[in-house]
């Protein structure tokens, strides 16, 4: 196992861009985690300056309510990363479970689960999220649950396909031939062999969730102010005057979203290559 991990690390580091992205991501996550200690002001603290440009006191300026943009940005990253992470965890857990069941029990169980999966997949995504956000009380946790519900079909299909191919392997047949119980075959034999592709897929779900949270909050259906999120910080950019004359109100948040999503995707790509032993040369 030790040598296995070293092999994975070596294959990962062959992707230079991904290695850089991993460093950036680590710094950003640390900054988000340490926000209460490193941010110069509280996220909702109102100072005497309103809509001021960057200065020594406020490195990234202040917003229309006089709050420090840098401080809000750090806290917003906390919110966005939490939403992304939790939504990914929920959708991955649901997807893995349904995918396992669907792939293992062929027949009517499979048909029911797949029909439901296709149904969820065929809904116009953003519309579903908007309707759900309108029905439930907007807030961080409803966003997490909504995104978690929307993202699982991809995972379920991925896992189902994997299980179907694992069913053809001889070690699966040997387990059947040895009369091993279902729970052993499912969780001890099949599940560990689907972890790698799921992990890779989860990174892209993570990135998409961050984008979706930003989109929803931008539309005012997501995380509600005064709690900062990367999306609702961009909300102000809906006004032309801010867009043209007060770039410090939207450029930092926008760039941070781009940076997070690009980095996560690069890391995911490298992870896919790193986890595949066939790439060892």
């Amino acid at each position: 196992m030790q040598s296995n991990l070293r092999h994975i690390a070596r294959r990962f580091l062959r992707h230079r861009a991904a290695a850089v992205c991993l460093v950036i991501l680590t710094v950003l996550i640390l900054a988000a985690l340490l926000a209460p200690w490193i941010s110069p002001y509280g996220p909702t603290k109102v100072t005497k300056d309103f809509s001021k440009g960057p200065s020594a006191e406020h490195l990234l300026g202040t917003d229309q309510s006089g709050r420090d943009v840098l401080s809000r940005l750090l806290y917003a990253m906390r919110t966005s990363l939490t939403v992304g992470l939790m939504a990914t965890l929920i959708s991955t857990a649901v997807g893995v479970l349904l995918g396992l069941l669907s792939g293992y029990f062929s027949g009517w169980v499979d048909r029911c689960i797949m029909a439901f999966t296709d149904m969820v997949m065929s809904f116009p995504y953003i519309l579903l999220v908007l309707v759900a956000a309108a029905i439930f009380e907007p807030g961080m946790w409803s966003i997490i649950l909504i995104l978690g519900f929307v993202d699982w079909p991809g995972v379920a299909r991925l896992v189902r396909g994997n299980v179907l191919s694992l069913r053809e392997t001889n070690f699966f047949k040997a387990d059947i031939a040895a009369g091993m119980p279902r729970r052993y075959i499912l969780f001890s034999e099949i599940l560990p062999n689907t972890i790698a592709p799921v992990l890779v897929y989860a990174t892209s779900v993570f990135a998409i969730s961050i984008l979706d949270e930003a989109a929803l909050s931008f539309l005012g259906m997501g995380v509600l102010p005064p709690t900062p999120s990367l999306g609702n910080m961009l909300n102000g950019a809906q006004s032309i005057t801010i867009l043209t004359s007060k770039p410090w109100l939207w450029v930092p948040a926008g760039s941070l979203i781009i940076l997070l999503v690009v980095c996560i995707n690069f890391v995911g790509d490298a992870l896919r290559d790193a986890l595949d032993p066939r790439n060892d040369r």
Partner: peptide, 29 residues
């Protein structure tokens, strides 16, 4: 009854779970 009749397959490559040690492969059943 299955333990009473066992099988060895042609393709040994896929006959063993790649994520398990030989010890676990033999002892778990």
């Amino acid at each position: 009854l299955r333990p009473k009749f066992q099988m060895v397959f042609q393709d040994s490559g896929s006959s063993l779970n790649p994520r398990k040690r030989v010890y676990d492969i033999i002892t778990e059943p």
